[in-house]
Design a binder for these strands. Structure first.
Lengths: 176, 176
DNA sequence: TTGATTGCAAAGCATTTGCATGCTA
DNA sequence: TAGCATGCAAATGCTTTGCAATCAA
C-alpha cells in the first residue's frame, strides 16, 4: 500500500506526464526532480529559490534546466507566473489551486493571497462591456500590512527571523 | 495673450518645477524638452519611444537622460509606470488623469483604459479586511478584442496600418 | 564656485539561446 | 538510432551606474 506522501501529488505528476507525452517531449530525471521539489514547496518561488533547493539534492542540475522546466510546468498548467514588483518572476502552484490575487506589503515583502468573487464578476462584466474575450488577468495591491503599520520604524520580521521572500523595493508611482 | 498651446500644460510644468525646486534639483533644457514631448504625446510610451521623439528635436540628448527624466516625472506625480506583458515599461500621464486599469489585446496589442468604481471599492474593502493600508494597485486583464475575434486568422491592424504599440507576446500562464 | 546633470561606455540582472554532448523512447 | 534534453558559456534586452566633462544656480 502506498503511503500518503507517495500519493500526495499523483494527479500533478500524471498531468505533467501527459503534457510531456502529448507534446512529444521526454521525461528526464531532472524534470522529475524539479517537479517534485516544486510540488512539495507551498510558496512563491523564483527560479533561483528552486535552483538552490534542487542543488541540495542534485548539484549537477543547471539553472537553465530549472528555467526551462518552470516554463514547462507553466505550459502544463501546474504553475503560474506572478510578479510582485521586485523585478523577479515568481511561480506558484496552479493546479487545483483556485484563482486568487495578491496583496503585497512593501515594507516586509509579505504576500497575502485573496479571492473576491465579486471582483472577478465585475471584471467579467467590464471585459464583456468592451467586447473582450478574457484569457487571464492579474490584480495586485501594494500597501503596508498591519504588522508593519504598528512598527514603521522597525519593519516587521517573520517570527522565525527569516528574510522575507519578496525583497521590498521602492515602487515610485509604482507598477511592476 | 498666450495661445492655447502655450498654456495647455502649464499646471504640469509648474508641478514639475516645484518638484525640482523642492528636491534641490536643477532645471535643464533636456528635462524641459523631455517633459514637453511627454506631455504632448497622449499615449503609452516606452523610454525608447520617447527617446526617438526627443532625438528628432535634439539629437544630442542621450538615452540615460530619458530614463532618468522618466523616473523624475514619476516621482513628481506626472507619470505612471505600467507593464503590459511584453517586458517593457510604459509610461502614461498621471497628473489630472484619474486612476484607471487596462485591458490588453494579446493579438494586436491594443490597450484599452477603463475605470470601475465598483471594483475600486471592492479592492478597498478587501485591503481593509486584511488590515492593509493601500498605496497603489494594478489590475490588468488580457484577452482578445472584438476586432481580433472577428478575424482570428488575420489579426486586426490599426486603420492606418501602423504597428501596434504593445508587441503581443505569448503569455503562457501569463503574468507579466 | 559648487554641486547637480549629462552622455558615454561599462556594468547589472534576469532570462534566453547556441552548441556540443548526453540520454530517452 | 533519432532527436529531444542538458549544461555551459555567451548573448540578449532593458535598465542602472561610474565617471569626466558640462552647466545651472
Amino acid at each position: 500500500m502506498k503511503t500518503r506522501v507517495e500519493n500526495e501529488f499523483q494527479s500533478e505528476r500524471e498531468l505533467f506526464e501527459e503534457h510531456i507525452r502529448k507534446s512529444g517531449l521526454r521525461r528526464t530525471s531532472q524534470r522529475d526532480l524539479i517537479l517534485d521539489i516544486f510540488l512539495r514547496t507551498e510558496d512563491h518561488l523564483t527560479m533561483e529559490d528552486l535552483y538552490w533547493l534542487v542543488q541540495k539534492e542534485d548539484p549537477s542540475v543547471g539553472q537553465t534546466t530549472v528555467y526551462r522546466t518552470l516554463k514547462l510546468l507553466t505550459e502544463a498548467g501546474l504553475a503560474r507566473e506572478v510578479r510582485f514588483g521586485d523585478g523577479k518572476t515568481y511561480y506558484e502552484h496552479h493546479y487545483n489551486h483556485e484563482h486568487h490575487d495578491h496583496l503585497i506589503c512593501t515594507e516586509c515583502g509579505k504576500v497575502i493571497e485573496f479571492f473576491s468573487p465579486e471582483i472577478e464578476h465585475l471584471q467579467d462584466l467590464t471585459a464583456a462591456e468592451y467586447g473582450f474575450r478574457l484569457t487571464n488577468h492579474s490584480l495586485r495591491m501594494w500597501g503596508i500590512c498591519q504588522d508593519c503599520q504598528r512598527s514603521i520604524e522597525e519593519p516587521h520580521q517573520t517570527a522565525t527571523g527569516a528574510q522575507p521572500k519578496v525583497r521590498p523595493r521602492s515602487v515610485p508611482g509604482g507598477q511592476f
